[in-house]
């Protein structure tokens, strides 16, 4: 599916592009550019299901709680014992591909590209910003690159993904309607360390 019509990102009203800098800062924040997102639910014990998902995206289905496969922009994130989030490039027809590969295999596939806002958070003190609102132990030895978890940050549920990167970098998936709250919460939490707004890419 391709988009030819005016789209508004969840944080469009904040005009972040105008405020973005390239300055170094202990914490940086950005709204990620649009991506294609889908939920797939199915039986992890069903070899056909696993193989179908793998064929569709060239990524193994992560079966261990709190893990992911792939990279930041093309990945499969574990959400539950029978539930995964797929992220692909903007416009990619993820559910179509799933339908093709899974055929009659029992599953649910739902496109949710518009249902989430994607906020990037990074910098040397990014973990501290998250720890202000998240009760999990995010120590790098435990919440390693590639780890993902659905948790409470401040007062909203988020999906937190530690990106495979040299320096601390996270992607936060949040329900679209909460994006404004989460952005302001993050900016407020980060302000004591020094926070820069970055271009999303």
């Amino acid at each position: 599916m391709s988009w030819h019509y005016p789209r508004q990102s969840p944080l469009a009203h904040l005009h972040l592009a105008v405020r973005a800098t390239t300055a170094e800062a202990p914490v940086w924040l950005c709204e990620r550019p649009p991506a294609s997102l889908a939920i797939v639910r199915g039986d992890a014990d069903d070899a056909g299901f696993r193989a179908g998902v793998e064929r569709a995206f060239g990524l193994a289905l992560p079966l261990v709680a709190g893990t992911s496969t792939g990279q930041a922009e093309r990945c499969l994130l574990w959400l539950g014992p029978d539930e995964w989030l797929i992220r692909g490039p903007d416009g990619a027809d993820l559910t179509g591909r799933l339908g093709q590969e899974l055929g009659d295999v029992l599953h649910q596939r739902v496109a949710i590209s518009d249902a989430r806002a994607l906020i990037g958070l990074g910098g040397e003190r990014a973990r501290e910003v998250l720890s202000k609102g998240c009760g999990l132990d995010l120590h790098p030895s435990l919440f390693r690159p590639g780890a993902c978890t659905q948790t409470l940050l401040g007062r909203v549920g988020v999906l937190l993904h530690a990106l495979p990167a040299d320096r601390p970098q996270f992607d936060l998936y949040v329900a679209r309607s909460y994006a404004d709250y989460l952005w302001h919460w993050l900016a407020d939490a980060a302000s004591e360390f020094g926070c820069a707004i970055r271009e999303g890419g």
């Binding site: 508004q8 009203h13 609102g133 909203v156 329900a175 909460y178 404004d180 709250y181 407020d188």
Partner: peptide
């Protein structure tokens, strides 16, 4: 902590909120 106005309670926004 941070849970005071304006962050006291999340406000959900629809696409048309603006």
């Amino acid at each position: 902590g941070q849970d005071r106005a304006p962050l006291h309670e999340p406000v959900r926004r629809t696409g048309m909120q603006g």
